[in-house]
Amino acid sequence: MLFVLKRIGVSVLLVWVVATIVFLAIRMVPGDPAAILLSQGGVAPDPAAVAALRVQLGLNQPLGLQYVEDMRRLLVGNLGQSLQDQTPVAGEILRRLPRTLELIGAAAVLAVLVGLPAGLVAAMRRGGTFDRIASWLAAAALAVPVFVVGTLMVAIFAQGLHWAPAGGYVSFARHPLRHLVLLAMPAATIAVGLAAILFRMTRAAVLDVSMRDYIRTARAKGVAPRRILARHVLRNALMPIVTVLALNLGSLLGGTVLVEYVFNWPGLSGLLVDAVNARDYPEVQGVVLVISVLFVALNLVVDLLYALLDPRVRHG
C-alpha cells in the first residue's frame, strides 16, 4: 500500500515537473500565437488587431499570473481552451487520443508478431542465410524514413492498385470495415521500423541468454531444444525486449507525426505539431501532459511486467 502511494506521489510530482517545464519552455520559444493566427498565408495583419487578440487571449498578463492560473486550472482537471478557436482542449485530446493509441497498438502487435520470431530465428541460426537477410532488411528498415515507407504504400495500394483509400479516418462505430482498412497502412508503416528494432533487440537478447550457463545446464539435463527456447531462453530474454518495446511505444505517443500526415490520420501527434506550430499554448500543454500521464502509466505496466518476468525483481 505504501509502495503504491509512494508510486502515485512520484507520478504526480513527475507530471507537475513536466507541466512546469512545458509551461516555461513553450513560452520561451519565440513566436506569438496571436501574430501567427492572424498572419496565415503570408498576409500582414494590422498590429493593433494582433494586440487586441493578445488581450482577448490573456497573453498580455504577467507570466507568473498565467502560471498560477494554469496550475489552478489543471488542479481541477481543466486543460483549458485552444487559443485558435476556443475549443476545449480536453475534448479535442479525448477525440484524438484513442486514434493514436489504436495506431500505436496495432503497430506494436504487428511489430511483435514479425520482429520477435524473426529475431529468435536469426539468433538461433546465427550467421545463417535467414540471419543475414533479416539483418539486411532490418538495417534497410531502420534507414528508410517512415514517410518514404508510407508514401510508397500509398503510391502502390491507393494510387496504383486503387485497393484502399489514400488515407483518412472513419470511426469504427460508423464504418467498422473501412476503419480497419484505413488503419492498416499507417499501422504497418510504423510497424516496419518498430519490427526492425525489436528484431535487433530480440536477436541480441536471445544470443546473450543462450550463452548463459543455465542454458548449458538445461542442455546437460537433456531438455528438448524447443523447450529450452520457450522455457529458458525466451523467458529470460523478454526483459530487455520489453524494456525496448516500452521505450519505443512511449516515444511513439508524440512521435507518429509523419505517418499521421502521410495517411491523413487525425491523431494526437498531428495535434501536437499543429499546436506547436500555432504556438497554441494550452493545447501544447494539454497534449504533453496527457502524454506524460500515459507514459507514467506505461511505466507502471512495465514495472509490473518486470516483476512478472523476473522473480529477482519481485523479491528484491
Partner: peptide
Amino acid sequence: RGMDVVLCFPPLLLALLVVT
C-alpha cells in the same frame, strides 16, 4: 525519474527547445 521527464517530452518539442 529524470529520464522519465525527458521521455515525457515529444522529440519535436525537445528539439525545438534546444534549438531555440
